[in-house]
């Protein structure tokens, strides 16, 4: 890899702890190149959402970053003043949230919720923002933007709301989008459409995406690179095609074995092996030991 090329996102040795001292992120390193989709996969509690939140500066107050750097297009987020960091994140990144039912403010109409960042953070004119939003609503195949913009969230279906959120995320042409399990809360039939939509917009706009998911099927469909997470630690990192062809880490292999297949559901739904878990526990313990006593 060319060391001079500026990554869209560069995370180096990121560690975060809870108040009780437990590490929830264990020296995580990963990068997302411009226009690339990097999947972050792992079971719930593996810290994949935590990484997304850390990048966007919206970690819960109880989680404290103790080590590591996050560079957004070369700018070290940790070295910026809070206000500068906020504005930078607002201008260059966006979030496609997990649950479209709770991600829109129930007491505000859709229109202002979609334009507020363009107007109030990026300083666009109301007219320009309005045109832009209509253009994006068209791209996410919403055919009656007039009605939708005047709606309150509860007047739209879950799939429609996720389309609205996707449109809003792409509207400001962010360099990086964090997609936090964007299809998990949706109907199975809608999941596919939404995933296809995100993939299509990503290609057309050339936006880099950090795509958080627990679903290897989704990883295969949308990403070029993938990082496999276990207990806040990246256990394997590879090109998506290479990972599926030849998974290196036992945990990755176990995860793949645990993915349900319609042809043989009973045989395919294997829980992760005891031996694999024991190996992971030893690996985590060794990493924590090395982290606490770097010179011993």
């Amino acid at each position: 890899m060319n060391a001079l090329a500026k990554s869209c996102l560069d995370i180096r040795d990121l560690s975060a702890v809870l108040p009780n001292g437990l590490r929830v992120l264990r020296s995580v390193s990963l990068s997302v190149q411009p226009g690339e989709v990097r999947a972050l996969v792992g079971e719930s509690g593996a810290g994949k959402t935590m990484i997304g939140k850390a990048v966007l500066g919206v970690l819960p107050p109880s989680v404290r970053i103790v080590e590591g750097d996050m560079l957004l297009e070369g700018e070290d987020l940790g070295k910026l003043q809070p206000k500068a960091r906020r504005t930078l994140i607002g201008a260059r990144t966006a979030l496609i949230p997990q649950d479209p039912l709770t991600a829109l403010n129930p007491s505000r109409r859709i229109g202002p919720q979609m334009t507020d960042r363009l107007v109030r953070i990026l300083g666009w004119s109301g007219e320009k923002a309005d045109t832009r939003i209509r253009q994006l609503l068209d791209e996410v195949q919403i055919r009656d933007p007039e009605r939708v913009l005047k709606c309150y969230p509860h007047e739209l279906s879950g799939g429609m709301r996720q389309r609205v959120l996707i449109a809003a995320a792409f509207a400001a042409e962010p360099r990086l989008i964090v997609a936090d399990e964007p299809t998990t809360a949706l109907d199975v039939t809608v999941q596919k459409q939404i995933l296809r939509l995100i993939a299509q917009l990503q290609r057309e706009h050339g936006t880099a995406i950090l795509f958080v998911t627990h679903d290897l099927g989704v990883v295969a469909k949308i990403s070029q690179k993938v990082s496999v997470l276990y207990a806040g630690k990246v256990v394997e990192e590879a090109e998506t095609a290479a990972l599926f062809a030849a998974p290196q880490h036992p945990y990755t292999r176990a995860l793949m074995a645990a993915t349900p297949r319609y042809t043989d559901p009973l045989a395919s739904l294997k829980p992760v092996d005891e031996a694999v878990l024991a190996g992971l526990a030893a690996e985590i313990a060794a990493a924590d030991q090395a982290w606490r006593h770097p010179h011993g």
């Binding site: 966007l56 500066g57 906020r86 607002g90 979030l95 949230p97 507020d116």
Partner: peptide, 9 residues
């Protein structure tokens, strides 16, 4: 959370 990501204080 989404509003914070948008850049609002």
């Amino acid at each position: 959370v989404l509003a914070r990501v948008k850049g609002f204080s």
